[in-house]
Design a protein around this nucleic acid. Structure first.
Lengths: 145, 145
DNA sequence: ATGGGTGCAAAGCGTTTGCAACCGG
DNA sequence: CCGGTTGCAAACGCTTTGCACCCAT
């Protein structure tokens, strides 16, 4: 997490921006969340630390984090918008549609094939998202009972 | 495509709604698109057929189509919102992060591997979502100039 | 001190909704 | 006719922006 803040501050310097209390506070709280977080939720957490901070600053900082590549924005098909720290090592997700359990996995062969697909359409691949939805073994057993 | 309209009209009857010129026109044009379409784009197409139609009707009809299960809404991480007729055969997406162009593809080998991954975690795979984000050749050329 | 950062409120933008007129059954 | 549907414009919710003041450098 200090690693995140270090990278963030490096980015700020490199881009010729300035360090500020607010950016520090927002980023710190953002990186302390282990999972996805929505703007309103982050804003509330931030206000507990510094009630003077406006939501505009949260938006601005989050946009900075995305620009720096340290955070990723996710627009789910439900309409929910959340942000998450960019995963250190890429992984995909296997999600149980019953109990919501999430398993992370990495499959080199698939990554290669994706690269090949992008290439065949003359796309320069930047990142991807793969989500497998299914029913985990525990839930499958429960269903049968 | 007539199949789509038939199903749509069945849904309308079943739900106790009414048939109308506008719904017919919007749905017809929507189903005549082979790929993803955004609301503004659909609205423009609709207006060429019937300039009296308001955008509110396009929104309302699209929502109906989603409720009926005949269309799907996609919120890509670029922020683009598009709709597509519910795919008869599954496919995945390749999205340009610059111009938002969407290419559909299907890769049997990857599907097999996904099945294998699910199995190795003892998940019963139901469906999945794979989105590759990159820069298309047109945008890559523009950038270099 | 200089110019970027902040908070506030206003503006934007895409989407939904209230309403009177309209039209399908 | 009756009540659902439409077009319009206003309302909405989320996000961005203009501005005067503040603060890091």
């Amino acid at each position: 997490m200090n690693m995140w803040m270090e990278q963030f501050n490096q980015f700020i310097l490199k881009t010729g921006l300035r360090h500020s209390q607010q950016r520090e506070q927002v980023a710190r709280i953002f990186f302390s969340t282990t999972t996805h977080i929505g703007i309103e939720e982050l804003f509330k957490k931030v206000q507990k630390i510094n009630s003077k901070i406006g939501i505009a600053t949260v938006y601005r900082t989050l946009n900075l984090l995305v620009e720096s590549g340290l955070a990723q924005k996710r627009n789910f098909d439900t309409g929910a918008v959340t942000y998450e720290p960019t995963p250190v090592k890429h992984h995909d997700h296997l999600i149980c549609t019953q109990c919501q359990e999430v398993v992370e996995f990495h499959h080199e062969k698939i990554e290669e094939l994706q690269e090949g697909i992008a290439k065949s359409y003359k796309y320069e691949l930047q990142f991807h998202k793969m989500e497998l939805y299914g029913i985990c073994s525990k839930c499958r057993l429960l269903k049968k009972k």
